[in-house]
């Protein structure tokens, strides 16, 4: 499902990340571990089609994503990759439902309110559908961010440090939700973190050496 081949990333002429081959199958759940500065975020951005590497190739469902033109890559990302960040960063002027509908719109998919209801219900957030982000707690906002990442049934769900600012209880809850949603949508899950609390949740792990 995901193949990363000999990726090299440079910044101002210096090699910042060198990554050999990595193959991930459909539906697998991976934990990408590494200390700060080890290149986890860079690798996640490369996998997500946000940062073109200087060398190497990233294939998702047999599509070499960096061979796509910008507009096509944007659409591909919207339709096939769901991304969860450390901060939820929902659009504050839109309601919860609108935040999910706009994700469908940006991906070039039809706006499906039934799907919105389905996802929000699975995250126990349907009763907050008309709330604005600022009316939600941090934990609730993170759930909506997860809902937004899975709304388009992505093949790949990536989460970059989704628990670093959360306490133990919320860390567990967010990880459970990510795993639950990836299973529910048959998506491959990759979680990048330096948080050792989450190790036991994942059978597949990759440790990046900084």
């Amino acid at each position: 499902m995901l193949q990363v081949q000999s990726v090299l990333h440079q910044y101002k002429g210096q090699v910042k990340l060198q990554f050999n081959n990595w193959q991930v199958n459909q539906g697998e759940q991976w934990l990408l571990l590494g200390n700060s500065g080890s290149g986890k975020t860079t690798l996640m951005h490369i996998i997500s089609g946000l940062l073109k590497p200087a060398e190497g190739e990233v294939m998702i469902n047999n599509q070499s994503i960096y061979q796509l033109k910008t507009a096509k890559l944007d659409q591909f990302r919207g339709q096939h990759i769901g991304i969860v960040f450390q901060q939820p960063h929902l659009i504050s002027s839109l309601t919860v439902t609108e935040n999910l509908l706009i994700a469908q719109r940006f991906a070039g998919l039809p706006q499906d309110k039934t799907r919105v209801k389905e996802v929000l219900s699975s995250l126990n957030m349907y009763d907050k559908r008309s709330s604005k982000p600022q009316q939600l707690s941090q934990g609730q906002m993170q759930r909506i961010a997860i809902a937004r990442a899975v709304i388009n049934k992505p093949a790949l769900l990536v989460a970059d440090e989704p628990t670093s600012s959360l306490d133990d209880e919320n860390t567990k809850a967010v990880l459970d939700l990510l795993i639950q949603q990836s299973e529910l949508n048959n998506a491959t899950l990759i979680v990048a973190t330096h948080d050792n609390r989450v190790k036991e949740k994942f059978t597949h792990q990759y440790v990046l050496q900084g």
Binding site: S48, L50, T70, A71, D74, Q75, R77, G78, Q79, I83, F85, Q87, H89, I91, S92, I102, A103, F106, A107, G108, R148
Partner: peptide
């Protein structure tokens, strides 16, 4: 700026 970057991750094109 961050919100705009998040929109791009959702599939919004630079033109959007």
């Amino acid at each position: 700026r961050y919100d705009l970057a998040v929109m791009r991750t959702m599939g919004a094109s630079p033109a959007a």
